[in-house]
Design a protein around this nucleic acid. Structure first.
Lengths: 337, 337
DNA sequence: ATTGGCACTCGAGATTACCGAGTGCCAGGG
DNA sequence: CCCTGGCACTCGGTAATCTCGAGTGCCAAT
């Protein structure tokens, strides 16, 4: 159906269009790439490619631009992942190695990705599910309110205030703390719910409501809210490469946590480098955008995802290379710390 | 020098220009505001205002637009702070009251301000200086690395990993923890440095380097880095009201922490509502922008600043009202929690 | 299947013309 | 002395028109 030359033509069109932003015609194609045929031949090929929906003409007498379908074919079959240069890899390493804490790692990752790809970067905070509990601290703040602090073996600290349904004296708090630590210390957070189910029974009846409150915060709020935390950066890059009119919409979308969640959620196998092109993105207002995403984590486990968002006309091989490399390095950093 | 009517004319010009974005001429001024004089008279007034530098003509045969100096006069003498509507106040209150923790408070504040003013909001994390130490926790993570957790009386939790220069056994860690807590519990963080100066002397010589490492992280890194943390939101609002060409620059500036620091740092008396107009902003690339900022904190103390950034052509009274109101409410929330 | 030739299309950019809001200035009137 | 109506002038923005050339599709020839 599509012989080698037609595929080569498609690739050439995409490469030229990505680098020039302008519809590409048969003549210039022949010049720039050394296809050993005449423009007329290319025109015939183009006609076929257009008929099959891989490219399109903005206007009757203009060159061709790739369609979403064309990019899809390109990504799936015509291009690989472009490895980063040594200099880039070293830059990533040193930049990420200097991070102080988790917040800092995430912040730096966002910047790094944005800078590397000159596009918008999106990074989700790593899940706590697979961490283990190292220590739980309960600190009374004012009457009826406790501060719950969870320290994990990966050196992460999460805190939340708990509104208590009933007053509870310091001794009871100490008891609750002791029981919590005894039960949970060393356990994976993902198994915490099961382990802790019978815990209220081991607490004095009067304090049970408070214990339940603490537990619910610990289980739901703490672990889950964390995964919802997603940051982005590189918005300035949007302004440069003009998202024609959509800029406003894109920025708005990016500022909605929910949208970011969906954006990362939609991607398929998290262990894999995933590319969603144009309308494949179900998020409203991002139909002109492509998203290259990957999971990252310490070791094998995927703890969260990160992505780069740009116009459908983006340098896919390069972006994919950057995303993959950054995901790996972040994983390393997390595994070490 | 400038009689009442000329001031009224300036005010009218600013109001019209802010709402229409178009140079305003003598005729339309007379129509829209019921000045009981003829356009010719207004023209004379305008000529004077222009000579004095309060307004300018983009082109010879166009209306007038306010200059930075004009806005300055307007803010200083012609306008007050517009109080928010009851509905707005209630919205602020309920929105902020739902916050889970400090991160959440800050995030919500940014959104709130951005939404309220339809501009870009900038919020600095509150300083820890005036908080007191409630508890210090040291958690070994891997050999040679400790996690330092600081819990304050305001229910804030800060953590950081510490690289240890020498190995240290668990007993020594426990000792160090005990000494730290004994010395610092209940003390203000700002006085921590003094209190803790002689502390290494009370530690076994072999462990002193480690103790020093922990202390330096506690004092410098922990407290100070926190103040550097500044977030912004509402970038989408930039795209709507077009910052003519500067959009790119503005976005770039906003993504630089350093720039944000300067932006907030420049403002004068932190307890006061401050307005910096156009070129008064020393930050490169923000010469077309105005910044309305205020300090906020729990009770009297100013813990940090927040600001709104928009085009010089902004609704000053409204923006100032929003900034003041939000600063107050955030202060309340922080005082309560 | 490929190629050179050719007539045709049509958007982008330049050129021109026009319109009207806005100005400055001046002479007359309260 | 300040205000006003009148008047000639300016000039940016919009619309209308023109030109140019890259690009196309088709066809006959190789």
């Amino acid at each position: 159906m599509l012989d080698d030359r037609k595929l080569a033509v498609l690739r050439a069109i995409i490469e030229d269009y990505v680098s020039t932003t302008e519809p590409v015609g048969s003549k210039s194609l022949v010049d720039r790439h050394n296809l050993d045929v005449s423009p007329a031949t290319i025109r015939n090929d183009m006609a076929v490619l257009e008929e099959q929906g891989y490219i399109a003409q903005p206007h009757t007498s203009a060159g061709r631009i790739p369609t979403d379908k064309g990019y899809r074919l390109f990504v799936d079959r015509l291009s690989g992942v472009k490895p980063l240069s040594g200099a880039e890899r070293r830059a990533i390493e040193t930049f990420l190695a200097g991070a102080y804490d988790l917040d800092d790692v995430v912040t730096r990752t966002v910047r790094l990705l944005a800078q590397l790809t000159r596009q918008v970067a999106v990074v989700q905070y790593p899940s706590l599910r697979t961490s283990s509990v190292r220590h739980i601290e309960l600190v009374p703040i004012v009457t009826g309110r406790l501060l719950l602090v969870l320290i994990t073996d990966t050196g992460r600290v999460e805190q939340r205030t708990v509104e208590l349904p009933a007053n509870i004296d310091d001794d009871s708090i100490a008891h609750l703390r002791a029981v919590l630590n005894a039960s949970l210390d060393g356990r994976q957070i993902s198994e915490a719910a099961a382990v802790v189910a019978d815990l209220p029974a081991r607490i004095a009846p009067a304090d049970r409501p408070s214990a339940v409150a603490v537990l619910s915060v610990l289980l739901e709020s703490l672990v889950e809210r964390h995964e919802e935390k997603i940051v982005f950066g590189g918005a300035a890059n949007l302004a440069a490469r003009d998202f024609s009119k959509g800029l406003r919409d894109v920025l708005e979308a990016l500022e909605e946590q929910v949208v970011l969640m969906r954006l990362l959620g939609e991607t398929g196998d998290p262990a894999q480098l995933t590319v969603r092109i144009g309308a494949e993105n179900l998020v409203e207002g991002l139909h002109d955008a492509s998203v290259v995403s990957a999971g990252y984590g310490a070791g094998e486990q995927v703890l969260a995802k990160l992505a780069v968002l740009g116009p459908t006309r983006m340098d896919y091989p390069g972006t994919m290379g950057a995303v993959r490399a950054v995901a790996r390095y972040v994983g390393q950093i997390l595994a070490e710390s």
